Structures are given as structure tokens and as C-alpha cells.
Simulated scan of single mutants.
Amino acid sequence: MRAARYYGEGDVRIEDVEPDDVGPNDVRIDVAACGICGSDLHEYAAGPMTIPTEPHPVTGEALPFTIGHEIGGTVAEVGENVDVAVGTTVAVNPIVWCGSCRPCERGDYHLCENGGFVGLSRNGGFAENVVVSAEKVVPVPDAVSPELASLVEPFSVGLHAVHQADLSAGESVVVFGGGPIGNTVAQAARAANAGPVYLSEPQDARREAAERVGVEHVIDPMETDPVEHVRAATGGVDVAFEVAGIEQTLNQAIDVTRAGGRTTIVSLFEESATVHPTDVVTRERTVNGTAAFHGGPRSQEEAGVTARNFADGTLDPEALVTARIALEDIVEEGFERLLDPDSQEMKVLVQP
């Protein structure tokens, strides 16, 4: 089969590979679509970062291997111990965990001390099919297409961020960064009946995506100071989400909250950032982080909710999709285009 294999910085090759075998507890999925994630872009542009160059402690794999972890498709083959029916439309919970460290023992598999991801620590979904353990399969309702099932993973990240922020109905929210994950956070906040919801994003296409799903207040920070604007309207929001990954937006996310407000950091930072702790202390603010979403048996708590919200229209995954490309075009039409600072692409789905 054809697959996109990661060899290192700027080096992704489309190759013919032998499909992985299906073990007794495994599932083979024919991949309808696999989304290009920001973490894939980081690895392509500056990696290997999280991709192992030596055998991974859980998977035993190291580069080169097939990347891609935002996977949707149809079950094609199952192992003898698996009760998922062939033909079922599924998403994939890509989190890899060891099961024996302290976070795993308390059920926080997404915080595993030895963990990783399908597509970042072992073969993933930029391929015609992918084999995963049955516990990673998330069946989705009939109303969700195999293609859009690939977006269950990033939308679950947004839902988990809202859970980590302990967001309540009626609380005011601002999201700094309107990329794919920033937009999933904004949609999840709206689904939680937060309001008003603000989003600050310099790129036109990303602001437009937020407007399409009903985000009430969309700000271009190149024209309007988002902190001054939001504070003038609200006196300081209850919850801010940092989803841009730069020092400026981190400080803005802290500064814009009210006394006792909360800031949740969602993005991964390529460089260190400086904040003034006094700004947190004197206003009794809280700053926390959020990582992926619940893995293991608990993955259904968030991925399952996300899939149902796709089906009933509470969340709109199609609003994020700006391109669908063939596997053979993943480098030029995928990675390179998304990394172009002038590109208006949002979410690119690769259709093997």
C-alpha cells in the first residue's frame, strides 16, 4: 500500500509499504481521511521533536514510519478478540500509553510518562489503511461520514480544553489563536453555553471560519488591541484560552482575565516565554495546561461526546475544512502550503 513516511526534518516520502498485521486485539481501518495537525507541521518543519529516533519505550518503533493521527475511516478487518463489526465507521483515539506509570494507574492515560501517539510514535494514518488496537477505536453515529470522523480527534482536544478550564454556562471567554484547534475550542465553548465568546486571530480565513459557526465577537489583532477591546466590553473575561503558542498571546490571555479568572494554555510552544508572575498573584488568577484528551477506556467520555455532537449539529467539523488532497500531494499541497505564511488554508484532509 502507499503511505507517507517520515524520515526527518523536511523529509516525508510517499512509499510502497507492507500493511501491518492484524493481531487478536487489533483492528484494520481503511482510511477515508487523515487530517494534517499542527504537530505534524512542527515535526516536518523542525523535527524530529516528539517522533523517536530510538525505539519508543511503548511501541518499540523509531523513524522512519508512517505519520498521521487524525484518522477517520471504516473497519476492514478485526482480530479474533474484537467485537467491533467490519464496516463500522470509526475515529481513532491515537494516544499510546504504558499502563504502569502513576498517571496511567489513575486513569490519566493521556498524561502517560512513557506515552506517545499513533502517527507520532508508531505507524499512523497517512496511508491506505492503518492497524490499531481495538481500545483505540471510537465508533461514530451513522450521520457522521468516515471522512469527517477524522476530525473527532482535534475537536476532542478542544472539548478537553474546555473541561480543563472548568468552564460553566454563561461565563465569558476569549480564545487567542483561531487555527484549527483554536476554532475547536471556540465551538466547544459555545456548545457549553458560554458567552459572550471572543476570538482573536490575524488571518482572514481563520476569522471567517469562526464567524461561520457563530462566534459572536471576532477580532483582528492587527487592527484592534484584543485585550483593550475585550476588557472594555467585559471588565475582564472569566476564561481565556491561549492557542497561538507565542509569548505575546500568552501574556494577553493572562492580562485579559478578571480577578480570579482562569487562563488555559492549549498550544505547544517552540520557544520559551516570559510572563510576570505578579500579574497572576495579585489578581488571584489561575493558569493551567491541557494536553490532548482522555485516552484509554475514558476516551469515549470526550471522543464519544464529540462524535455525537457532530451527528446532532452541535459542532460543525466541515467549517474547518479548506482542502482535500491526495496522499501523493501531501508534501506540496499539504505541509508546504500550510507552512506558507500567506496561505489561507485551515484544515487539510488527506484522502488516501
Results as ranks from 00 to 15, higher is better:
residue 70 E to L: 10
residue 327 L to Y: 09
residue 219 I to T: 06
residue 351 Q to S: 14
residue 102 R to I: 02
residue 267 S to L: 05
residue 55 P to Q: 08
residue 50 T to N: 02
residue 256 V to M: 06
residue 231 R to Q: 15
residue 247 E to N: 13
residue 180 P to Q: 13
residue 65 F to M: 14
residue 224 T to D: 13
residue 100 S to Q: 14
residue 198 Y to R: 06
residue 345 E to F: 06
residue 282 T to S: 11
residue 56 H to P: 05
residue 305 V to G: 00
residue 218 V to D: 07
residue 97 W to S: 15
residue 184 T to P: 03
residue 125 G to L: 04
residue 329 D to Q: 15
residue 196 P to K: 04
residue 277 P to S: 04
residue 72 G to R: 11
residue 302 E to V: 15
residue 96 V to Q: 07
residue 309 N to S: 12
residue 145 S to V: 11
residue 303 A to D: 04
residue 181 I to W: 04
residue 252 Q to L: 01
residue 247 E to P: 04
residue 18 E to P: 00
residue 146 P to F: 09
residue 328 E to D: 15
residue 281 V to P: 00
residue 309 N to E: 09
residue 231 R to E: 14
residue 107 G to S: 05
residue 93 N to G: 12
residue 152 V to L: 06
residue 49 M to R: 14
residue 309 N to C: 08
residue 134 A to I: 00
residue 75 V to K: 02
residue 122 R to G: 03
residue 179 G to T: 11
residue 30 D to N: 12
residue 256 V to F: 06
residue 215 V to L: 04
residue 339 L to K: 02
residue 123 N to Y: 01
residue 121 S to D: 09
residue 283 R to D: 14
residue 156 S to E: 07
residue 215 V to C: 05
residue 349 L to I: 03
residue 91 A to T: 07
residue 292 A to K: 00
residue 14 I to W: 02
residue 287 V to H: 02
residue 337 R to V: 11
residue 251 N to C: 11
residue 80 E to Y: 01
residue 47 G to L: 04
residue 346 M to E: 13
residue 103 P to K: 10
residue 27 V to G: 08
residue 350 V to F: 08
residue 135 E to P: 00
residue 222 M to R: 15
residue 252 Q to C: 01
residue 52 P to Q: 04
residue 255 D to Q: 14
residue 336 E to D: 15
residue 6 Y to M: 03
residue 295 G to A: 12
